[in-house]
């Protein structure tokens, strides 16, 4: 118990760091995932190729490797940003590949007749997607998107290895100060639980509100 009370600000900073990484990377992942999913179902071949390559590369690269590539690779090309921004980029892009596939599986649950009906009324691809297909796909992708964002929250721990302030990284300092490693980790785990349970709760509400009513 002492570990927490005596290092309140250290834990607090780490916790906030993880929350920030999670929120910013989630927003980036949702936006990019949405764009890439649209690309993957677009009637234009070149867009489909971009979407497919995006998913293939990012989903199949180990996240740690991606962190190395972004944090050590991009500065070589003259792109120098704070490490936290790099971490958000790496996490967001990586997770967007999974969000894209979750969205696409949702799009595939909508019967083709819905899209055909919209197109037969003269609606464009974008109108069909936004007004008819995605609102229906949205209902069935709430659970998988929730899982993906929870995975993102936990994956953010990798950023700690690249000297970004986040929750898991606090253990190094605590360890040096001589605190019990077990209690340090228990409180870190509690911190992650608070974040992931909050995401779960949010998605439960979304599901109750918007989930599939069959």
């Amino acid at each position: 118990m002492d570990v927490l009370t005596e290092n309140w600000s250290l834990y607090g900073k780490g916790f906030l760091g993880t929350v920030e990484l999670t929120v910013y990377a989630s927003v980036l992942a949702l936006v990019l995932g949405f764009v890439m999913a649209s690309f993957r179902v677009a009637p234009v071949g070149s867009l489909r190729v971009i979407g497919t390559v995006w998913v293939a590369v990012l989903r199949n690269t180990p996240l740690t490797l991606l962190f190395f590539a972004v944090l050590l690779g991009l500065p070589r090309f003259g792109l120098i940003l704070p490490f936290q921004v790099f971490a958000v980029l790496a996490l967001g892009c990586y997770t967007s590949a999974f969000i894209c596939e979750a969205l696409r599986s949702g799009i595939n649950t909508v019967p083709t007749g819905q899209g055909e009906a919209a197109r037969s009324l003269g609606m464009s691809f974008g109108q069909t997607l936004n007004n008819v297909v995605l609102p229906q796909a949205f209902r069935s992708v709430i659970p998988p998107v929730g899982s993906t964002l929870i995975a993102l929250a936990k994956n953010s721990a990798i950023a700690g290895a690249f000297s970004v302030t986040e929750l898991l990284g606090t253990y190094k300092t605590l360890n040096e100060l001589g605190y019990s490693i077990i209690w340090s980790f228990i409180w870190i785990a509690v911190g992650y639980l608070i974040i992931t349970l909050a995401i779960s709760a949010l998605f439960n509400v979304l599901e109750k509100r918007w989930g599939v009513a069959r």
Partner: peptide, 24 residues
């Protein structure tokens, strides 16, 4: 495929076997 086709489809209505009303 494209804008011209969408405009044409607006002029030709279609009724399907499975209705295809927008479920939401």
């Amino acid at each position: 495929e494209g804008k011209g086709l969408a405009e044409l489809r607006a002029e030709v209505g279609m009724v399907f076997q499975s209705f295809n009303l927008f479920a939401h």
